[in-house]
Design a protein around this nucleic acid. Structure first.
Lengths: 204, 204
DNA sequence: ACCTGAACACCGTTCAAGT
DNA sequence: ACCTGAACACCGTTCAAGT
């Protein structure tokens, strides 16, 4: 088969497949092609590169976020952005390194940064602190998402004699820990810590 | 030349070269071999794999940390551990993904986790919160270090009309921002936020 | 326009051959 | 024991060939 009568692939179909794959572990174009039942080279008719796929995923997320945010403002808006960001990154932890390393700066990302800057400004953060704070938030969210890939400690690997406190901590662990849930529950704590001392502006 | 009279390589020499290379950007065995003036295959006589190299770097760091910590305790000890960890990770951001992804759990790492658990316990953190908190600290430090690789925003890429607040923020940016320094200055804020509400135990 | 197969440069890893 | 060269499987990317 060469060109089919009706196209097999599309940007949308590729992104769906990526989302299905990238949740757990590594993500290669070979895997993606298998998932889509095409050859690897076919993918390049729809996306420019592996990095571009991640870029498209993020663009998609920002567009959705934009409508969801509505006209919320201040700490409420910030919290929504950060949690949504964490959810997005938590879905594709294996792609986070690409997200960090490759310098894709499209209009959507600039919009997000402007919105974050404006929201933080409204909360009372001075201009000099805006970029450092945005960088910190970025690092926390991406770091936490990426950390989802880390293998958790297993009780059998520590002995009560040499690691008493670790053993005690492991003993309190429930059967099924939802690490994604924990990620969310931690974010507001961190944000509260970062924003302590700032008080709201009256106008923007 | 086959086997030289006196060995060219050693674990120590390899780790030195890695530290020289991994500071900025990617790290391949080909680069490492060039830096050491040997062939790639020679490296395998001294380390088992690329991942093992990162593992050795971390082991080295933990051993140094151990002596530096002395008998400090409580929040002071925690702060020292975290800052030292950030410094270590900040030196080798390109290797952070390997550090997170590969499940190397040696005696040194277990010692570090036990020490963290004990230190947090002394600060007043209940057993149920120890592992989540350690995970969060890990994510923050590694995320922040990895984020050092991200390309920073450049003023020329945003327009004052569409991104007024981002433009204002960029205008306050000094010529040479030391992102590593900022990493450090943020960590204590985050720790304070995470540990708010806990009060010290009387005994361990 | 869109799918394929073959080729490319690069990656980490293995191993027989040499001293 | 330790360095080398050649081979391997895998990776992302390119491109001429087919419809």
């Amino acid at each position: 088969m060469a060109r089919p009568h009706t196209p097999i692939l599309s940007e949308a179909r590729i992104l769906e497949a990526v989302r299905r794959l990238a949740v757990d572990g590594d993500f290669t174009l070979a895997q993606l092609a298998r998932e889509l039942d095409v050859r690897v080279s076919s993918i390049y008719h729809h996306v420019a590169s592996k990095g571009a796929i991640v870029h498209l995923l993020r663009r998609d997320w920002i567009l959705r976020l934009r409508t969801e945010l509505g006209d919320s403002a201040g700490r409420e808006r910030l919290s929504r952005i950060v949690h949504s960001y964490a959810e997005f990154a938590g879905e594709i932890p294996a792609l986070v390194p690409i997200l960090i390393t490759e310098p894709f700066q499209d209009d959507e990302l600039r919009w997000l940064y402007e919105d974050l800057a404006q929201t933080l400004h409204d909360i009372g953060v001075p201009d000099t602190r805006l970029l450092p704070l945005i960088g910190t938030i970025d690092a926390i969210v991406l770091g936490a998402a990426f950390d989802l890939l880390a293998p958790p400690f297993h009780a059998s690997e520590v002995s009560p004699e040499t690691h008493p406190r670790l053993t005690a901590a492991l003993a309190t662990l429930p059967e099924d820990v939802d690490r994604r849930e924990h990620l969310h529950s931690t974010l507001d704590d961190l944000l509260a810590g970062l924003l302590r001392g700032y008080s709201a502006h009256t106008s923007s």
